[in-house]
Design a protein around this nucleic acid. Structure first.
Lengths: 213, 213
DNA sequence: ATATTTTTGTGAATAATATGACAATATAAC
DNA sequence: GTTATATTGTCATATTATTCACAAAAATAT
């Protein structure tokens, strides 16, 4: 098992880049085509592949179809991944209807909320009472959950999820949830991503105005 | 200028953690309180602060208010940051109404789309024709933009943004956009984040079932 | 068939990042 | 006022990630 997060992220990127290359008619690729399409170095591509035991042919490169297939198996995309979502607010609702997931073999099978006004039993993705989550997760053997609740509730939801048997959480609440041996947590903080960007934009403009002195 | 992305991200986290600690009544903190709240090591906190020239008092720690203030200045939060958004689809629309940004001093001042059906001139955040973007960015001196269009359009939008004078882009399209010397790009790929999680969940369950053999 | 070229796969070298250790020093105790 | 203690700030060390470099192998050319 490769336990380097960045490396898995790159694998996703390679997969996406490969799909684009395939659409352009590529039958095989070399590490430098792919690195170019994915925005990394060729040796990075080969090193990553080496870590996952993906091999190509010397002087022949990699066959696009086989490569996509191999990466998809590693990423668990050979079967549809069913996930749940808790918190049907703005962001949650948008994710429920986001088409990209289904295309990528990820299906949000149910959402949950504490607010009865949000319940929608018969929607494409039903929104159910939070109390039903634990049972649902157990019955349906769900292992991945998305948290899109306010920060004050996030920790509690994460604990309920963990207790129900969820093993991976994608957290959009602006609080850093910590993973355990049992549960992997991936935090996405939208404000923080923008802050990051703003810092570099400001730093850049300061550096440039300094140059002008 | 600190050019380490991760380090800036941690700074955001420290800021958020500090606000929570402040709400709990903390007047001063030590590097270990803060590291605990932010989920890092104490030496990491001190090292980061040292990079940004943030100092505390030996044996006295850091004053919470001063620390929040100093971090906010570094992150450019002493003034409201105005950003635009292109692509008023599901995700775009959710971000337009996301309250967290305004609370954090980030304001989406206008959205743009190619689809006339989406235009909303008089909404809290107006949605305007894409053709008006360049002029708007120039007039309003906008420097940060969010891309929430389909992947096929993302590259083109990024180029228009860059030409208009945008210096930082937060990209949600599932294609890796590459930054330049002029423009910093931050890519968020939601599917990829879930794939990442799924990989670790699967790897973990395999490791556990292997243990049982 | 043999030589030439191209591209992989990987071990070694380098670079980036995080941790540990501890001297310096401010606060508190006496 | 002196001593003891806790905590910072930073340098040295360890860890992790990336790039380089090149031998081995496959495809093509001669």
């Amino acid at each position: 098992m490769v336990s380097n997060r960045k490396c898995i992220t790159r694998l996703s990127r390679y997969k996406n880049a490969l799909k684009r290359l395939k659409a352009l008619g590529f039958i095989k690729v070399f590490s430098d085509n792919l690195s170019d399409a994915a925005g990394v170095t060729p040796s990075q591509v080969r090193k990553d592949f080496s870590l996952f035991g993906i091999t190509g042919n010397k002087r022949g490169g990699y066959k696009v179809d086989e490569l996509i297939e191999q990466i998809q198996v590693i990423l668990g995309k050979n079967e549809i991944q069913r996930v749940i979502l808790v918190g049907a607010g703005r962001i949650g609702a948008a994710l429920l209807r986001y088409k990209g997931f289904e295309e990528g073999g990820i299906r949000i099978v149910s959402a949950f909320d504490i607010d009865p006004a949000k319940y929608l039993a018969n929607d494409a993705v039903p929104i159910r009472p939070l109390e039903e989550m634990t049972q649902f997760v157990r019955d349906e053997k769900i292992r991945v959950g998305i948290i899109t609740v306010p920060d004050s509730a996030a920790q509690r939801i994460a604990e309920i999820m963990a207790a129900a048997g969820i093993k991976g959480i994608l957290n959009f609440a602006p609080i850093q949830l910590r993973g355990t041996d049992e549960v992997v947590i991936n935090n996405i903080n939208l404000e923080s991503e923008l802050e990051n960007l703003i810092y570099f934009v400001n730093a850049h403009s300061k550096a440039n105005s300094a140059k002008c002195d």
